[in-house]
Design a protein around this nucleic acid. Sequence first.
DNA 1: CCTTAGCACTCTCGTGTCCCGAGTGCCATC
DNA 2: GATGGCACTCGGGACACGAGAGTGCTAAGG
Lengths: 366, 366
Amino acid sequence: MSEERRLAVLRAIVEDYVHTREPVGSRVLTERHGLGVSPATIRNDMAALEEAGYIAQPHTSAGRVPTDKGYRLFVDRLAEVRPLTSPQRRAIETFLSEAIDMDDVLGRAGRLIAQLTGQVAVVQYPSLRLAGLRHLELVPVGGARLLVVVISDAGRVEQRFLDVGVGPGAEPAVVAVDAPAGPEPDPGALDEGTLSELRARLNAAAAGKGLADLPTAFARVVSGVDAALAPLARGIADLVVDTLGAQREDRIVLAGTANLARADMRFEQGLSPVLEALEEQVVLLGLLTELAAEPVTRVGGGVGVRIGHENRLDGLAETSVVASGYGGDGDTVAILGSIGPTRMDYPGTIASVRAVARYLSRVLPG
Amino acid sequence: MSEERRLAVLRAIVEDYVHTREPVGSRVLTERHGLGVSPATIRNDMAALEEAGYIAQPHTSAGRVPTDKGYRLFVDRLAEVRPLTSPQRRAIETFLSEAIDMDDVLGRAGRLIAQLTGQVAVVQYPSLRLAGLRHLELVPVGGARLLVVVISDAGRVEQRFLDVGVGPGAEPAVVAVDAPAGPEPDPGALDEGTLSELRARLNAAAAGKGLADLPTAFARVVSGVDAALAPLARGIADLVVDTLGAQREDRIVLAGTANLARADMRFEQGLSPVLEALEEQVVLLGLLTELAAEPVTRVGGGVGVRIGHENRLDGLAETSVVASGYGGDGDTVAILGSIGPTRMDYPGTIASVRAVARYLSRVLPG
DNA sequence: CCTTAGCACTCTCGTGTCCCGAGTGCCATC
DNA sequence: GATGGCACTCGGGACACGAGAGTGCTAAGG
């Protein structure tokens, strides 16, 4: 009863099951795969594998199906990395290179992964962290609201609203956005001239500064302006620092959701839990981040795999997540991946995810 | 056989079927709704309604189900507008007012509609059209690429990449983005000083100009700069005009996709076609635009309804779309709506869509 | 000690039958 | 025109049955 053959049997079971998505029995195993032994022998091996928890049978007298643990072993030790074909590589190159801006690049990356893997793709937006301020723009919009546009050194653009409450007295209060529906104050309250001067000062102060130096630089501006303007200036400064410093990793795009509904994707619990989990972007992001930071599960060049119940999310108990970090200058600034049923083509999915991640890393601004 | 009662019967059938999602028979119709007549009488009316094509029976000896035509009549003549409760209104106000930027507002609007209607929400991004240029920013990123950030008067922000091929000779060519993976040219090619001067000139030229005047204003700048810079300047100018002028209505957000998978949403054809249709954003946008421009189907204050096969998309044959335009200063700049099974709560959906659309119209920069 | 053939056993799944109930259409009556 | 009565139809659940697939176990062979 060679250990080696048992692993071969497990591999055969996984590959066959992934392909046919039917429980696989001892007979077809000997027929379709070139193990040169009889069904009875296989049965012994299968009994041992089942004992060890790598496979299970849905009911007596059905074939065997890999368990999460079985897939794990397969991914860690049995799967051979299968590089993409060169037409595939070329398709990636050309499709992604047609993107017109960063949003478009990430959107295309998502659709591409969805297409290549036939599953759902998740792409996280690169975080702003650690970036300096490139330019600050102030745009007054309707009444007492200000649109603050922050452009970081890394080329990322963020926009925020700021409500400027204009009191009648000495101290105009800068309030959080909580009642934009209230009665509109005097629309002329934000004077264009003042605003552009303020913008110029803030931009000048920020020029060339890293995130660490911004607060002090801004503080100097705030104390330098007219007393009536100070609260406004402080409000803007706070907002900018906040925006740049925040771990704004909270935006992700999904693609290929329709793949979930394909007939060959029967989920035991239906796909409601899966779709719900995908809509919980915050939790999903947590999962991805965790996954990318986990060297243990890494296989094949920075790609992490989470199988079935290894995902903490109940909704994803029947799915596996294959993810990889990507980022301009080598280190990870964001994550992208593919989600599909535990019964998925791991080598193929891993190859696709890795290829796209590498392309993005090469092409995005560092 | 009063015409009036027949319509009452149709209304009762629609309401009952929407509620129970089971074919409704003559008996329960007399019991649950207060029509003071016997089942036999109802049967006569139902026969007439079926003859006229408003209802149908799935098979002999099942109750009746409304047809698309029946729903249409219901929506046009029978549905009473049911205003939202005031807690609902308040919920909308507070939830939307917590948004921090425009992306967030639209994202929240989508989630809100999904939540209120229990269906899928679609929100189109406001188009940039007709907006003037507020500010232009140039950020060099990796090698010979330039990030061009365009901020419109309406507060919308767009970003585009521009590849700047730096030839050795007299004429640096500005090329389209098609080979970002090529060998990187000299990183110093884009001189920071030149760039900021160019930016200053372009911004100065654009100040206060509407879209119509921009090309000429830019042309003057292009002819004014150093000959070596002219192609670059022209490239940027073209890109900006292009970005502002393009009918950039091609971005939409979806929310509540998970609702489709709920048990009470059985689609005859499965939900694959529906999900696929939703992923075809271009076509979907076409549908929405068409819908908003169609005064005939309008009911209840600018809200349009498309029922079942009225949608040209095959994938949406079993669904209805309820949509409304929204926009800052009264006229429609974009569209939002809700998509669900033809058997949906039309009055409730219409009320929710309209409420959110009105809120957005009030709050967004005009 | 591992492999193999044989065999009895178990379970799922598809098929066929039957019956019940819901709902209808029609006719005669009020 | 509304109603009560009645025969008819059809879907769907309950049940039984057999076929087929796959197993575990045991005993024999290398």
